[in-house]
């Protein structure tokens, strides 16, 4: 399936859920927040939240700043 991941079109083959996607990207251990189509998906629901073709996924993290 094709999703827009942080603004870039990506083909995702092995991920059915948000949790799968974070594993596939090898960032499951990092502190992130996921938005699916503009709505935050809280961590407890990562396993249940299915991905669909055309989804817009944003993965947010925390960086240095003042």
């Amino acid at each position: 399936m094709q999703i827009t991941l942080n603004g870039q079109l990506q083909n995702i083959e092995n991920s059915q859920t948000v949790a799968d996607l974070l594993e596939e990207l090898q960032i499951a251990h990092k502190k992130t927040v996921v938005e699916r189509n503009g709505t935050i998906v809280i961590e407890e629901f990562h396993q249940q939240e299915g991905l669909m073709d055309g989804d817009r996924i944003e993965i947010i993290h925390f960086v240095g700043g003042g």
Partner: peptide, 19 residues
């Protein structure tokens, strides 16, 4: 501590994590 919230750079794994 103050910091910023940003889109993760998924396509460049060299990005440092300040924390």
């Amino acid at each position: 501590l103050t910091f910023a919230v940003r889109r993760m750079n998924l396509f460049d794994s060299s990005q440092p994590d300040p924390f």
